[in-house]
Amino acid sequence: MSDSMHEQLKQSEGQVPPEDTQSAETAPPAYGPHARRNAAVIIIVVVAVAAMLIGGQYLVHRGERSGAVTAGGPKPGATAPDFALQSLNGNTVHLADFRGKAVLLNFWATWCEPCKLEMPWFVELEKQYGPQGLQVVGVAMDDSGKDTVAKFAKDMGVNYPVLLGKESVGDEYGGLEYLPTSFYIDRDGKVVARVFGLRSRSDIEDWVKEALSHGSNAAGN
């Protein structure tokens, strides 16, 4: 909030600024220059509030259309939060285990139909870019249990590690209001892109290439 806005709010809430301090006897009548100034202040505050409300609704509209504005999580350039999660074969896996590789970290669930569409693409990308250092990691944000997740992953022909998600990890990655949500992480563990909702295969491949090209161990560095 700007200083002037703060000042205006103070005035509108009945706090009298020092220059306006007067005794009751000398207080100005409810008309004249002081009244005009108060009216102007009220109008400014009302206009400012209206502008903020309209701005908020614009953000909502934009967020609904793009699916990418209202969600949080680590932003591009930030270090991806490390985690320790169980894999389907019972091992504990840390994100840091993949340092030196570009990671496509995909949060999904068995009840998420759009997530299913991406999985064969991830399988292909893992095959195509794995030799260059790509590691796809799936995190299932499911309450349905390990066996259900394992069966689903097998049915989908998943060839990359699938981990069993936890709410605490979801919180660190912005709460995961939408699924699928994917984070593209470079070889140094920094987020290159975060993507909420389903995107095209070509978009996904572009982000994979970007993640592979960043970081101290990137090809060509």
């Binding site: 509108s12 809430e13 903020m52 908020g56 953000l59 909502v60 967020g63 609904e64 209202t70 209001e177």
Partner: peptide, 17 residues
């Protein structure tokens, strides 16, 4: 007043289904 000022954020967070 503060509730009004924060309402854009609240609106933005309430954009889900």
């Amino acid at each position: 007043m503060l509730a009004l000022l924060f309402s854009p954020l609240a609106l933005a967070q309430g954009a889900g289904p």
